[in-house]
Design a binder for these strands. Structure first.
Lengths: 246, 246
DNA sequence: GAGTGGTCTAGACCACCAA
DNA sequence: TGGTGGTCTAGACCACTCT
């Protein structure tokens, strides 16, 4: 059952996402939305409250409801000494890791930039759901340049674009066997409120944010071999890093 | 101006925090709260909506409003190879780092555990506000065992318990000069909705979660030298880690 | 002053759950 | 079946911002 205010929220959200309401611009005023949708004031306010808690808009008295710009400013962690070690945590992984889909795609600009590929390149995209217990705790979306996917198929015989193929070993080992050894991994962690899709997939209660991780794996020549986006449920996820100082 | 529903939300929140409403138990039903506070139904619902978006309670039709248990399950990152490098990001630090307070304290159990100290130990606690531009982007709370603070004062002449003392160099250099070299740093990152205090301090818009980092620094013998908690505004923060694989 | 969103009311009907 | 929260109305008054 989809209710009136949810419908209004959805239409406004679509308008924000497709650019009808650009960041910095304003939504129509409450009285206007009341006329447009022929509903009472509180119904409109419920819709706007929903968008507000999703982090999309900021209503201000006497001004209007402004569409937010959600580009976070980086504020990196400062290490005193760079040389360090990163250790895997034992017994903390997901207890189920399901490949939801896999195949060839022409990715959007963001992925092209992360992989430093020319426009319209083909890549392998893999979508995974990692669960802890009954619930999905983390969504993983992964992209590999065609060159990398192809040499892995040639040298290791694993077709990563086939969702039914379960790799015999982890991706980094496959890369090494194919002669493209991963050398550095960069991860950037941030947080935000979940999208309605993520709420549904991970069964997120209201008011639970997600932990978002962007990863880029590179070889010796600093050429990207893989990139991935992790979206983890904030109420059942944390990530840890251990660093050895010299 | 504090409104009626904010007042009700505050009283209920206090009840949750002081244990009157334990995790798993239920808040009084809406009709009862209407009688208790002599307000209309929607006023009570506004109060509950607020707690909901703060991640404290989960209302369910036909059941009641349940107090949530907010202990996240760990799901650590799995590295394929442990040995790695962690590089500082250039030009990404805060442009202002103010020591808000500093002094000796008897910390709560959580800090005692993180520092592996006997109960009732004295520690130096330092509170910092790190800003990016006009706004506070991250709160940092730091604790040092008395042993560590004392030897730093002896060997480096820096009294870390004095809020007006600006250290001549970074903490890890001071530790090395005092003969207690930091050897490993472990960080655990998670996310949640901000508390009302954090909303005020960092001027957080509604619907913005915070990125929480727990850090423990240890020496060669794996004895904790320092621990810190970072709370970063989710709309203006991210943290990055770079790892060199062997 | 005109327009914006914020709070609150009194009442209604609905969807869901447990006994 | 009775109690729970979820949605919605029509109207009122208030606080705030802009011009």
């Amino acid at each position: 059952m989809t209710t009136r205010y949810q419908e209004i929220a959805r239409e406004l959200r679509d308008g924000i996402e497709n650019g009808t309401y650009a960041p910095g611009s304003k939504l129509p005023a409450i009285p206007e939305l009341m006329r447009t949708y022929d509903v009472a004031r509180d119904t409109v306010r419920d819709a706007i409250a929903r968008l507000t808690h999703e982090g999309l808009v900021t209503p201000r008295r006497g001004v209007g409801t402004t569409v937010r710009d959600n580009t976070p400013v980086a504020l990196g962690y400062r290490a005193d000494q760079p040389a360090a070690t990163w250790s895997a945590q034992a017994g903390e992984g997901p207890d189920s890791d399901r490949i939801e889909s896999a195949g060839w795609e022409t990715p959007d600009r963001g992925i092209i930039e992360r992989l430093e590929l020319p426009p319209n390149s083909q890549v392998v995209r893999r979508l995974r759901h990692q669960s802890k217990g009954e619930q999905v705790a983390q969504l993983m979306e992964q992209w590999l340049p065609d060159m990398v996917a192809n040499i892995i198929e040639e040298h290791a015989g694993t077709d990563l674009a086939d969702p039914d193929v379960v790799p015999s070993t982890d991706l980094y080992s496959l890369m090494r066997r194919a002669g493209e050894s991963p050398s550095t991994v960069t991860e950037r962690l941030s947080t935000r409120m979940p999208t309605p899709d993520e709420v549904e997939l991970m069964e997120l209660p209201a008011g639970v944010p997600v932990l978002v991780t962007y990863r880029v794996t590179r070889n010796d020549a600093s050429i990207p071999l893989e990139t991935a986006t992790f979206v983890g449920a904030g109420d059942r996820m944390s990530q840890s890093f251990t660093v050895n100082l010299q």
